[in-house]
Design a binder for these strands. Structure first.
Length: 427
RNA sequence: GGAGAGGUGGCCGAGUGGUUUAAGGCGCACGCCUGGAAAGUGUGUAGGGGUGAAAGCCUCUCGAGGGUUCGAAUCCCUCUCUCUCCGCCA
């Protein structure tokens, strides 16, 4: 959410930034409402002040045993004016709020302008794409022996669900433990086991609501399935005032993630790439504003580190303006090489997304810290990133580590987590 | 699910309609006292908003939202969270 004071002071910059994001808004419109809003507030407060003074007088008069009916009559008249002014303000404030809560974050200056993912910028690449003496299969063709069972998922739950069995279930569990261990032991993140169901306040805080309601699974009574554990992790600091010396907070969590994929009908229908439910290890950092830029680099490096350990080729993309998420001011996607995609020609697919949300979420959450130097309150900066998406990491391992027999060589770093097995056989 | 008790400042806690303009204590900050410290003592100590160059002035907030009233922490309604007991349960 945007600071109305910023818009007041920098209307031209604001317009330019919103224009880059194709947001249909002008500061002129916003400031008009804001001005009217403030007039109404001043007006109301004059009435309130008078009411308070007169009411106090009534109290004194009654105490002294004097007649107060005359004063009471005049305050009664004020009452109507107050409630009328109150209504007007609510209307005007809601109008302003409706606009502000639906506007995306202001992008960093180094975010390239562009329309869609084709305009994203390659920052760096790592790893050697594996060379096969045969046409590599994708994960669906490799796992036809029931270990990845989409028919069963469809029967039990519906489309975009999968039942993972046997060694692959073990692989998923191994990856979760492996990634959590690196995050906690090596990167010193605090492990959190969060709720997988959250209320709408939390979803508003991180920016999924109200605009992206359709992407979520709603249960009842204001309870929603999390689309990512970014939501519960970031909302840990909602409505809190932290001390600057307690910063940064670095969290990591495993959770399943639930997405309705409403806007993705017909997209990635094959295989496990896009499911309604998937596992993810998520990093969230809560930092002093001066540290958020460097923290984004660090988090991206941490996500890359997992891929390096697993020896999976990847590239880091800086998302362009058209592809950057609503709450983010700058996002790096990490794309892993999937050799079985595109009929064996291979394809890069997103496996992590690391975002610096600046103070955008913390304004929505009212998450602040006290600066010891000047004792002032200020909004925190929040960041989130996958480290990594477990389902897609499984795909990457299956496709990159396949051999001529259609079996999977288990990456060495995972073997201690997999009863020291060397291979997953699909025959 | 049933019954009951609660939610007041960073924390504890007083407050059942009118100078509450939220007592008192703890904690914290700064000062005095002291050779230094403890003790003692004094002052200060929430957030949002409006206005203003600033100092300041005003306004809203006692879990949340409504209502009654000239006036609500206090009375009424709805919701929410916490605790205790019972039931069920991993």
């Amino acid at each position: 959410m945007h600071d109305i004071k910023f818009i007041r002071d920098n209307p031209k910059i604001f317009d330019k930034k919103m224009n880059i994001r194709n947001a249909d808004i002008s500061s002129e419109n916003i400031l008009k409402i804001d001005k009217k809003n403030r007039e109404l507030i001043s007006n109301l407060q004059i009435f309130q002040e008078e009411r308070n003074l007169l009411s106090k007088q009534i109290g004194i008069l009654i105490k002294d045993g004097k007649d107060a009916t005359k004063v009471q009559e005049s305050v009664k008249k004020l009452k109507d004016q107050i409630s009328l002014a109150d209504e007007k303000i609510k209307e005007s404030e809601n109008k302003l709020r409706d606009i502000l809560i639906n506007l995306p974050n202001i992008l960093d200056d180094d975010v390239p302008t562009g329309v869609n993912e084709n305009d994203n910028k390659v920052i760096r690449s790592w790893g050697k794409k594996p060379k096969f003496s045969f046409v590599p299969k994708d994960h669906v063709d490799l796992t036809t022996n029931d270990k990845l069972n989409f028919e069963l998922g469809a029967k039990i739950s519906g489309s975009r669900f999968v039942v993972i069995k046997n060694d692959l279930a073990l692989l998923e569990r191994a990856l979760i433990n492996f990634m959590l261990d690196i995050n906690t032991i090596k990167f010193k993140r605090e492990e959190i086991s969060p709720p997988y169901i959250v209320n709408s306040k939390s979803l508003f805080g991180t920016g999924q609501l109200p605009k992206f309601k359709d992407d979520l699974f709603e249960t009842d009574q204001d309870k929603w399935l999390i689309p990512t554990s970014e939501v519960p992790l970031t909302n840990i600091v909602r409505d809190e005032i932290l001390n600057d010396f307690d910063l940064p907070l670095n969290f990591v969590a495993y959770s399943p993630c639930f997405r309705s994929e409403a806007g993705a009908a017909g997209k990635d229908t094959r295989g496990m790439i896009r499911q309604h439910q998937f596992s993810k290890i998520e990093m969230v950092s809560i930092v002093h504003p001066k540290d958020s830029d460097s923290k984004l680099e660090e988090m991206t490096n941490h996500a890359e580190h997992i891929l390096i350990e697993l020896n999976l080729p990847y590239r880091v993309m800086l998302l362009c303006s058209g592809d950057t998420g609503f709450s983010s001011k700058k996002t790096y996607d990490i794309e892993v090489w999937l050799p079985g995609q595109n009929s064996g020609l291979g394809q890069y697919r997103e496996i992590s997304s690391c975002s610096n949300c600046g103070d955008f979420q913390s304004r929505r959450m009212n998450a602040r810290f006290r600066d010891k130097e000047n004792k002032l309150l200020n909004f925190l900066h929040t960041l989130n990133g996958s480290c990594l998406a477990v389902g897609r990491t499984m795909i990457a391992i299956i496709e990159n580590y396949q051999d001529q027999h259609g079996d999977i060589i288990i990456p060495e770093v995972l073997r201690p987590y997999m009863q020291n097995k060397q291979k997953i056989n699909f025959k």
